[in-house]
């Protein structure tokens, strides 16, 4: 190769420079356009900083740099499972945060991470016999419920279209915090999203009922009845009898005037 005459070497260099010179501006513009589109679709949520690099270690950082971000996140998730089995709640919390930072648009990490903290860690704290008294146990349990709730809410910020995160937040408010009005709000939002199961549409009204808000429950049942088309009402999954019996019961209980009732008879 070195034996090539100077003029041929120059010619070759000029040809290569010409090719790359023509391509480089096109490349930059094209890549910028791809990046803009991907930003609009909210991809690449990961921000790699020094703290994350320290937490990941050298091997996993190279994994991420090789384009294996999801596999790296999965490997870390295996550690979450181990931490759960060993009841190492603080370690588990840190690992959940790491996974969700690596793949903020993977709803399953938010979903399972929130469940691990708000349910498993909090129940574990409630049963912790090393705590001196019940008050300390309840305080620790509440700490983990709040952590789980925070994971769910950050998950919703990153994946607002994923119904299960809304529904699980509702479930947490309902069953662990007994805050039925907030539960109703989250179930309502979940039921409005694509792919949400049909049964969720009844949950807001049930939550208002549990909160003792008969007026709210009546309005929710009524809104549901009016939202459904006559054909939908006949479909088994919408459970027409359930909606009807609740509306009738509440109309009776709230003494709704006959002319304003859904079922005057």
């Amino acid at each position: 190769m070195n034996g090539l005459p100077l003029n041929l070497r120059l010619r070759r260099a000029m040809l290569i420079a010409l090719l790359l010179g023509l391509w480089a501006p096109v490349k930059i513009v094209w890549e910028q356009q791809i990046a803009r589109e991907q930003d609009n679709l909210r991809y690449h949520g990961l921000v790699m900083n020094r703290q994350m690099r320290d937490e990941l270690g050298q091997g996993l950082t190279i994994g991420i740099l090789s384009g294996m971000r999801s596999v790296v996140a999965d490997f870390i998730w295996l550690e979450v499972t181990t931490a759960w089995e060993n009841q190492e709640w603080f370690r588990m919390g840190g690992l959940v945060n790491l996974c969700t930072s690596l793949q903020p648009r993977a709803p399953v990490f938010w979903d399972m991470g929130g469940w691990q903290l708000a349910w498993n860690a909090s129940v574990g704290a409630e049963r912790d016999v090393t705590q001196p008294n019940e008050l300390r146990r309840l305080k620790a349990a509440r700490f983990w419920i709040d952590k789980g709730l925070d994971v769910y809410k950050r998950g919703i910020e990153n994946n607002p279209e994923y119904w299960r995160l809304w529904s699980d937040t509702g479930l947490l408010y309902q069953q662990r915090l007994k805050d039925y009005k907030n539960a109703a709000y989250y179930y309502q939002r979940a039921s409005e999203l694509p792919n949400a199961p049909v049964y969720l549409e009844r949950f807001p009204a049930i939550m208002y009922g549990l909160a003792g808000d008969d007026q709210g429950a009546y309005e929710a049942w009524r809104a549901l009845w009016e939202k459904l088309t006559p054909a939908q009402r006949e479909m088994k999954e919408h459970w027409k009898e359930k909606i009807e019996s609740n509306i009738r019961r509440l109309e009776q209980k709230l003494s709704v005037p006959k002319e304003k009732r859904v079922f005057p008879n």
Binding site: K27, I28, A35, E37, Q38, L41, Y43, S70, R105
Partner: peptide, 25 residues
């Protein structure tokens, strides 16, 4: 100017996570 943008191809992760990636992208 010279190195290809390999990071753009990590949208595969988005597909695997269940997010919709339009065909035109």
């Amino acid at each position: 100017l010279l190195i290809p943008d390999m990071n753009s191809f990590t949208i595969v992760d988005e597909i695997l996570a269940g997010n919709r990636v339009p065909w035109h992208d």
